[in-house]
Write a protein that binds this DNA or RNA. Sequence first.
DNA 1: AATTTCATGTAATTCGTTACATGATTCC
DNA 2: GGAATCATGTAACGAATTACATGAAATT
Lengths: 198, 198
Amino acid sequence: MARRGDTIELAVLGLLHEGPMHGYELRKRLNLMLGWGRVLSYGSLYPALKKMLRANLIREVSAAATPTSRRPRIVYEVTPAGNEEFQRLMSEVGPTAWEDDNFDIRFAFFSSTDMEIRLRVLEGRRSRLQERLARVQAELARTQAEVDRYAGELQRHGVESVEREVRWLSDLIRAERGDSEAPPTRSAGTAGVPTPSD
Amino acid sequence: MARRGDTIELAVLGLLHEGPMHGYELRKRLNLMLGWGRVLSYGSLYPALKKMLRANLIREVSAAATPTSRRPRIVYEVTPAGNEEFQRLMSEVGPTAWEDDNFDIRFAFFSSTDMEIRLRVLEGRRSRLQERLARVQAELARTQAEVDRYAGELQRHGVESVEREVRWLSDLIRAERGDSEAPPTRSAGTAGVPTPSD
DNA sequence: AATTTCATGTAATTCGTTACATGATTCC
DNA sequence: GGAATCATGTAACGAATTACATGAAATT
């Protein structure tokens, strides 16, 4: 099952899916990807790579590909087993997949899965947010004038942020379903909608 | 110095600042406060309370206050030393204070500090977000059409979210400075602006 | 009478960070 | 030739979670 800590594993597999890469570069790409607050440290990445290497999910690319010089870099690529694991993790849509980081990772690699899974992830995330929204709004209504000025302002802002994300998700779901004509968000006209005919 | 893990401590001190409470209730309030994703477990809270008890930041309220029955609850209150520590932590505005959770906690207890500190926290948070924004947007412009459809959509949504928060912070800063007339956000007319005359 | 919620706690584990340590390569 | 960046790794540590364990009070 997808434990909490499979986040890095999934991310690495997803990135290597695009092509071979070495650790340092993986870290840079990763930090950009979930870059809002979190930065992955070497102390997390390299041990994770070693572990995946042992598990045969990735392998070192024979250095031959870099002819001129440049030795110290260790370039990794996904093994067939790694690709299987990647698909397995992507399609394993459970509670952990709705969580912020895990959702982001999955979303970023949506191109590597099919629409069915995309929809499940998007809809799962949406329901989860809507549940929370309902709960907090109920609480907000109950305690009404009672709450502190700033605490209340914070909660209001939180609610609005989540409402915004729900709308975003709804747009994406609509686009994904091919209700057509509607671009995912405000992007340029034709591009951006994944045509089911592919 | 404010280490990463002082988050719970600050939150507990802040909540008890409003009045005595027992662990279970503290947890509920806490989960509501930073309720978007995180839930604090007993395994974190109770040891933290014990630690604070030892450090003399909080003390048990003599059970006399609950006359009818109800024994098992252990109600805590802040000690003078705890209040000092609370003020110290609140005014200690460093990098850790701009982080998501720490910022939220501090914001929620803004009523218990003065405007000077509020402004420092708000402005600090804003600069931090703006820095990130600049960095990501630069990256976004550089890699332009190159990026994956979904990865790009995620980044765009991230940027917009942060931009929204920056606007929110700017509103709050303006209100805080008493540029007057401008309510903090969209709240009801007169209320909500902290009048400096208090 | 039984189930749920309230209420407190401990032990083991996990995820990940910080700090440390090292060395090659490229830019100035 | 020196500084910055690239690049890889280890050890110690920290914060918080999960799982475990227990029991009282309230609700159905």
